[in-house]
Design a protein around this nucleic acid. Structure first.
Lengths: 227, 227
DNA sequence: ATATTATTCAAGCGATTATTTGAACTATGG
DNA sequence: CCATAGTTCAAATAATCGCTTGAATAATAT
């Protein structure tokens, strides 16, 4: 084989770097971690629990992500908190998700299959939603864990983590419509929330968007101080 | 190990699909193919030549990309032409490149190292460029292969493929500034064009953007009919 | 100091997977 | 039927992966 030219060596080296980023994302587990971190910073332990992986394994996958510059870690006391390095990483995740949704028929199939086991859950138009939330026409609930709500949520939303939902039923309006959202189209929290609310006689629908989609559409987010 | 819940199986399946897309891009060769296809449709043979891979190898990498829904193929007579499946694929490539540029120090290092062997080539502000091209203040040349120019180019640019540049020198202004561009920041065609022009006594600078960057900034492209 | 907790590191295992080349094969057109 | 463009297959190599286990490190509390 001939010795490569300088231009070829340059290209190979550059494309190899781009591939490094893709390689870091070329694992379902690591993509899940990125998805979780897009909701806000998290400790290793929390990530391990949410992703249902062992602690050591979670830690290792996080190292891989860090090696590709996708996440950053800061140590506060005993805990190491990871966060996305950059807004561009969240955009990259959205891009990946978008291509998968648009180009891989399996995504639609899997989604349909899963939702078929549950109720048929129609989506909600986010443009109309914005107006109706402002007018107090609907109650918008954020059913993610409290920390994620605090790290950023849709303006006007009330935090109501799924596990607490049953206890909080009394605070919800019986007549007005309730809209629930969580991490995004593939997060099951809102699906379960709506399912539960309907069983209890409420009028509830699900918003497919998570905060990532919401802000990608150019809308603002709101954050709370840490409790 | 306990049987995974329905929600977990759903998540795993979905994230696996996202990872499929990332896996397709987790190879320097395949990213180069995507980069080339972002300039316009190409036959397998052309791609093999441009990427300096064997035909069989190129074909196989293209199959992988096709399997992930990133490219599409159409057969016209003897030739199979590949193209990006979608504008979102080009965006994904830009996202990948952007993260790599922003987060991996190596990218900058490699670039600097390569350019050091050549002249120091300053970039050009594309906002000012637009105005100056419109005013006829500069001559903008597109030094990519003719087909890529025809598939889409910056408005006002003249096609002047690098191999033909020497022959065309007479048609270029001796006094006005010449701006050369090619496929993007990591394409070496414009670097060499500027280098050559300067040696011949022209005032030439390089535009880092390729058509992908140009249209990502919201500017229009122009296309020619096939010759 | 010592114990405790959170995280990382190192080693190892098993298995899979990716890359590439050359040859065989298919399809198209002259 | 032959040349061309592309795909596919087989095979060899190499590499990497993902996960577990157990020890190491680091910060904090007692």
């Amino acid at each position: 084989m001939p010795t490569p030219s300088a231009g070829r060596r340059f290209k190979d080296a550059i494309y190899e770097q781009f591939a490094r980023v893709a390689k870091a994302l070329a694992s379902a587990h690591r993509i899940e971690l990125v998805d979780l971190l897009a909701q806000g910073p998290r400790t290793v332990e929390a990530l391990a629990q949410l992703s249902e992986m062992s602690l050591a394994n979670t830690s290792q996958h996080l190292q891989v992500l860090r090696g590709a510059g996708l996440v950053e870690a800061t140590k506060q006391g005993l805990f190491v908190t990871y966060r996305l390095a950059d807004g561009t990483v969240a955009d990259l995740f959205l891009g990946l998700r978008g291509v998968a949704e648009g180009r891989l028929a399996e995504v639609d199939r899997i989604k349909r299959e899963f939702l078929a086991e549950r109720d048929q859950l129609e989506a909600v138009d986010e443009r109309a939603l914005r107006r109706r939330v402002r007018d107090g026409d609907v109650t918008l609930i954020d059913v993610r864990p409290r920390e994620e709500y605090e790290a950023g949520h849709i303006p006007g939303a009330v935090s109501m983590p799924l596990p607490d939902l049953v206890k909080e039923l009394a605070t919800l309006p019986k007549k007005a419509e309730i809209v629930a959202y969580c991490r995004g189209p593939y997060c099951v929290l809102a699906v379960e929330a709506v399912s539960l609310l309907r069983k209890k006689g409420f009028r509830a629908v699900r918003l497919e968007d998570g905060i990532l989609d919401w802000s990608a559409h150019g809308f603002r987010l709101e954050a709370s101080g840490v409790k």
